[in-house]
Design a protein around this nucleic acid. Structure first.
Length: 350
DNA sequence: CATACGTGGCC
DNA sequence: TGGCCAAGTAT
């Protein structure tokens, strides 16, 4: 099988010039890998630059607050990555004396780092011969070797792991891993792969069998459930009531508005009750907007009810709130759903 | 082992 | 359009 050599030759000629590839700084490689988990390079690039500028090294990141890191991360999604990243920055700085672990085994003990990211950092930053198997590698390897078992099941997955480590170039493990990822993202794409431009087309099983649109085979589909969210947008003289999502769950530690207590689908035509903490209000909440928003696992329908009130209680429907001046709304890390609502309707809050 | 966890792009 | 996919991890 002619796999590794043509792959590395192709990489030498076509590798992308990415900022975290300019040096072998474990901090920057780690940061880029966390950002790029389940995220395309094009989407993550601006965030990478923002983080490197704000935190040139892991020690600077360790001194940050979680609110600040989440605000920088806003819009990237999977916010546990940001929380775990800060935790790891503090752990490496304070417990490991600022020295990033140098083996995949040790790296994987850090929060937010699993088998893929540990192997990627170890191979790229420390030259450890270990295959980093991500979605691209799963696709390239399963197509090239014609693996027709589902790659999201243990059997198919372990076949790919084995082959990737078997064909790994032990002299250039980091380049080998990045070469497959670049090939997977630029040539061996999920749909409409550019097989005629592929350096390993000649020995590719999926290409020979006409199965590039069938491989990689996958089994699992996560079911999407519906979720109704009813927000109370309370204002008082240019201040807005905001609450932090501290409970375990989606958007943890990001900010949004207090929620009403009428989220049951059967009573969705009713107006929300006035929270008992509100001293007196002659009007009823006005339905300002209805937004739909899709998460990977939820279809959200969010309604935003506006109400001007004359006191500033510390809790709304039992939820702790802060009263944020309208000018400072932008300092809070909010879900994209809230950001979109805000950018469209903030003029209503004067 | 299955499910939770965001958002944007593509066809 | 709705479903799939993206440099996955934690539980």
């Amino acid at each position: 099988m002619n796999f590794t050599s043509p792959l590395l030759n192709w990489y030498d000629a076509h590798s992308r010039n990415l900022p975290w590839r300019e040096q072998k700084d474990p901090y920057k490689i780690w940061l880029s890998e966390i950002i790029l988990q389940q995220t395309r390079v094009e989407q993550g690039m601006a965030y990478y630059y923002a983080f490197v500028e704000r935190y040139p090294g892991i020690r600077q990141m360790a001194d940050a607050t979680e609110d600040e890191v989440l605000k920088l991360w806003q819009g990237l999604g999977y916010y546990s990555r940001a929380r775990n990243m800060l935790h790891t920055a503090q752990f490496v700085t304070r417990q490991l004396n600022g020295s990033f672990p140098s083996t995949a085994k040790e790296i994987q003990k850090l929060k937010g780092i699993g088998p893929y990211t540990a192997a990627a950092i170890a191979s790229i930053a420390f030259n450890e011969p270990i295959a980093a198997v991500d979605g691209n590698v799963l696709r390239v390897i399963s197509r090239f070797f014609g693996i027709q078992d589902p790659v999201d099941k243990p059997d198919g997955r372990s076949q790919v792991d084995t082959l990737a480590n078997e064909y790994l170039n032990r002299l250039r493990p980091g380049d080998f891993n990045q070469a497959i990822m670049d090939l997977g993202s630029q040539v061996c794409k999920p749909r409409n792969p550019l097989c005629s431009s592929c350096p390993i087309q000649k020995d590719c099983m999926a290409n020979a069998l006409g199965l590039t649109d069938k491989i990689p085979m996958k089994q699992g589909k996560t079911k999407v459930s519906e979720w109704h969210l009813d927000y109370l947008v309370l204002t008082n003289k240019g201040h807005i009531a905001m609450k932090q999502r501290t409970r375990q769950g989606v958007w943890k530690n990001l900010w949004d508005f207090p929620e009403t207590n009428i989220s049951s689908p059967t009573v969705r035509d009713e107006f929300p009750e006035i929270p008992s903490e509100i001293s007196h209000s002659t009007q009823i909440p006005e339905l300002l907007a209805t937004f739909s928003h899709k998460l990977s696992h939820r279809d959200i329908t969010a309604r935003f009810f506006l109400l001007h009130i004359s006191n500033t209680p510390d809790t709304i429907n039992g939820q702790n709130v802060i009263w944020t001046p309208k000018k400072r709304f932008g300092e809070l890390a909010v879900p994209i759903l809230i950001e979109k609502f805000w950018s469209k309707h903030q003029q209503n809050f004067d």
